Simulated assay, not measured.
Amino acid sequence: MKEIWNQWDDEINQLFYCNYGNLPYLFDIKVDKYLFRALAQYWNPTYSCFTFEKVDLVPTVKEYTTLPRCPKIQIDKVYSRAANIPTFLKKLMNITRMSKQWVVARIKQKGDSKYIPWRNLKDLILTYPDAKKRVDVFVLRIYGLVIFPKALGHIDEAVSDLFDRLDKRVTPVPTILVETFRSLNICQRAGEGRFIRCAQLLLAWFYNHF
């Protein structure tokens, strides 16, 4: 991703910043599994906070709202799953502007979940003539593989739904925090469990405090 970002000119970069904030700074945050194992030992799942001796710390909505650095996010418009949402197929068609046949051929299913491999979207970012669409697909990739990773190398249906609502200037922060707390709970119970959700954002928050 960083390689693609570095290939873009200032005009596309500014288009990205204007619509989605400064998410690319997350590319430079290295995820240290040993640090996460250490952090998990201080996570209190009962009170959903880190307890360092007598000091309790927890990521807040206000703090996390500053991390994406997106001026269009409105904190009073919280993301929630809509009652009537387009199908995964239609959402991908809207985002990519590709044909139904193209999208259908690339959707995969595992159990009840649907995915599209990242490699199928990468070429669109590099070659699509519409700069706004290249940016949209790139942001979908960031949310699917950096902020909400679930299936390695794939973008899942839940992420496409959240991305579809970003255009309405909703804030994904509460959803990000819920997934962060859930992953910390799993990691804490497992002892050496793997932290898989929103890792770079949690580290950005952690570095701001320490």
Rank of each mutant, 00 (worst) to 15 (best):
L152N: 11
K72Y: 05
G21K: 07
P129H: 11
G193W: 05
V178S: 14
C187L: 07
V78E: 11
R189N: 10
L162P: 01
F88C: 08
K110Q: 13
N6Y: 08
F148Q: 03
P45M: 11
Q188Y: 06
P68K: 10
P129C: 10
T180Y: 01
P149S: 08
G144R: 03
D32H: 03
Y20E: 00
L126K: 14
P129D: 12
L35R: 06
V139E: 05
Y47T: 15
C49G: 03
I12W: 02
K90A: 12
I73L: 15
E11S: 13
G193I: 06
E3F: 07
R97Y: 07
D56K: 15
K77V: 04
I147E: 01
R119P: 00
F16R: 05
L203A: 00
L202G: 04
L184P: 03
K133D: 01
A82C: 09
P45Q: 11
Y115E: 04
Y128H: 15
I186D: 08
F16K: 07
D28S: 15
V137D: 01
I116K: 07
R182L: 07
I73W: 10
R69M: 11
A40Y: 00
T175L: 09
K2Y: 05
T87K: 12
Q188L: 00
L23E: 05
Q101R: 15
Y115I: 04
R69A: 15
Q188C: 13
I186P: 00
K168L: 13
R69Y: 02
A151L: 06
P71K: 12
I73D: 01
F138S: 03
R194G: 01
K122L: 12
V135T: 08
W118E: 11
L92S: 08
